[in-house]
Design a protein around this nucleic acid. Structure first.
Lengths: 145, 145
DNA sequence: TATTGTTATACTCTATAACTATA
DNA sequence: TATAGTTATAGAGTATAACAATA
């Protein structure tokens, strides 16, 4: 049972926090489409991974309030990046699905982001990258606990 | 040499970016002083690492425009977290220095965010935490490159 | 003439509160 | 009565443009 308040585990938590904060600030500046906000990009990424979702589900996953997600989804729809359909079972809800155009944009976005990340990762050796790759799914899990 | 444009490495990069962005958003909400914005906190962090700086230098380091930094510095000064002195060589410039109060607040902030992150990490199993702990120093290195 | 910093103003993003429609 | 989503509105944060002071 790790003790996160002292010792190596506490140091790891501290390193993790510091690195995540700084890395996120650098990634934030690597936007492909300047007209898409970080949260809009994140919503598209979530839809790409998880498939269709309701606005409420997206709001919970992205940690924004429902009215904010209403606006984000409306903007994405206006840009032709998502489609809104009626929910099959509940007429209060809607189903948000990304379009092919969004998937293509994400592809392009990933290519450009990789160029930036690769320039950073080029400084790592193979073991370091392996450690990072193994941690990626754990970080994802951590992000939505 | 990994190829980040396709395959598992590309997936890892994508997962990494998404997780870092979402995790950082949650960590940003763990503020000691709710009246301090993320950029204000970041300016204090920069001053903590690099010592005194002019508003122009801070604007470049934080990737904000000069008028935004003018406002941020004014807010920090009003809160007693930085001090503004005249530049010794150039009367157009000013020198921004953090106060002892700012350093104490930064320490408290790090403690609180670490505690929050630890509460998330406590939900992981042993293998997951091991993967994360191995990746922590690598993430730190990545953030500093 | 160029540079540092400021003021004035507008835009983007997000939140809260109040509302509508449906369960 | 509770829930999903929207509308109206306010606030925070940042940007651009125009300006002042100094190099």
């Amino acid at each position: 049972m790790p003790d996160f308040s002292q010792g190596d585990d506490a140091a790891a938590v501290n390193a993790l926090r510091s690195a995540v904060m700084r890395l996120s600030r650098r990634l934030k500046h690597q936007r492909v489409d300047e007209s898409l906000s970080p949260t809009e990009m994140s919503v598209l990424g979530t839809l790409s991974r998880c498939g269709s979702a309701t606005p409420g589900e997206l709001a919970r996953k992205e940690h924004v309030q429902p009215p904010s997600m209403t606006r984000i989804v409306a903007l994405l729809e206006a840009k032709g990046l998502v489609r809104l359909d009626p929910h099959p079972d509940d007429r209060r809800q809607k189903v948000v699905t990304q379009t092919e155009q969004a998937e293509a944009m994400l592809e392009e976005s990933r290519r450009k982001r990789n160029a930036f990340l690769a320039s950073l990762v080029a400084e790592l050796d193979e073991d370091e990258w392996a450690a990072l790759r193994a941690a990626a799914p754990v970080l994802e899990k951590l992000a939505h606990i």
